[in-house]
């Protein structure tokens, strides 16, 4: 951003919230006589940067506006651009709203070609964010651990990025016949999948399952297997740490 914003849109910290803010930003932008890069800024959550000179608007999350933003991206840009933006919005960095807005301001006149315009700082930033999110989502496809609670499978995760929307389809395709819940402890948000049905999200923290109480023979078998499959003559904790940082091990049974 080159200058100070003259307008700050303050929105809720959720994908829908940011998409609503983007919608409003375009409405506001069209009202302006001239628009300079960075005139409008999107502040996510409570992280308002109090600014003496900028006008502030509180954005109320509006699913209809959010949906309109999405369909415009799909129709005017491309599926790939849509994927990139959606991924990037799952990142935790506070500038993701600004990056998405800058990307779209640049992108709408260009159309599908925008994904190649890497010399543009916003386009580059969105690529970068979406790559980080996709990488973490890929890791979680492997690192999620389900506990068998009898009635359903249950998993707790603490990803840095909001990966649940990213891994939803993957798990649905792999376990169509299972009831399962993947609960994101940090965001208090659960991905719920009833067998043979579509998944959905539930917000709130009523999923407080004490998984340590469960006695599951297969967990014990797996943990032992994990110990035995390593070749002791080649022990290499540094390499192990590089590939599977301690951060991710918290909710993996074999490291408990």
């Amino acid at each position: 951003m080159n200058n100070y914003p003259s307008l700050i849109l303050q929105c809720e910290d959720s994908i829908e919230g940011i998409l609503t803010a983007i919608y409003d930003a375009f409405v506001e932008k069209n009202k302006m006589h001239s628009y300079q890069d960075g005139d409008i800024s999107i502040a996510i959550g409570d992280n308002l940067n109090v600014n003496l000179f900028a006008r502030e608007i509180q954005v109320k999350t509006d699913l209809e506006k959010a949906q309109k933003t999405l369909s415009t991206i799909q129709s005017r840009l491309s599926y790939r651009a849509y994927k990139n933006i959606m991924s990037a919005l799952c990142h935790f960095s506070l500038d993701r709203g600004d990056a998405a807005l800058g990307y779209l301001i640049k992108g709408f006149p260009m159309g599908a070609k925008v994904t190649e315009a890497l010399s543009d700082p916003y386009v580059m930033r969105i690529m970068e964010l979406s790559r980080k999110v996709d990488n973490e989502a890929h890791l979680f496809c492997g690192f999620v651990r389900f506990h068998d609670l009898g009635k359903f499978l249950y998993s707790e995760v603490e990803p840095k990025c909001n990966v649940l929307p990213q891994v939803m389809e993957y798990f649905e395709d792999r376990f169509p016949n299972e009831h399962y819940v993947i609960y994101d402890l940090r965001r208090k948000m659960a991905l719920v999948h009833p067998a043979y049905k579509n998944s959905f999200f539930v917000y709130g923290d009523e999923w407080n399952v004490d998984v340590s109480k469960q006695q599951d023979h297969f967990e014990t078998l797996w943990t032992e297997y994990f110990e035995h499959i390593a070749i002791k003559e080649r022990k290499n904790p540094r390499c192990q740490r590089n590939l599977l940082p301690k951060w991710y091990r918290k909710n993996m049974v074999e490291f408990k």
Binding site: C141, F143, D173, N177, A230, R234, K235, C239
Partner: peptide, 22 residues
């Protein structure tokens, strides 16, 4: 997957854990 039973395969492969030998 086939929408009914368990299982799928990811072309790039997926690591589920890393043993003590890395």
């Amino acid at each position: 997957g086939d929408g009914k039973h368990m299982g799928s395969a990811a072309g790039c492969g997926i690591c589920h854990s890393f043993a003590a030998d890395g």
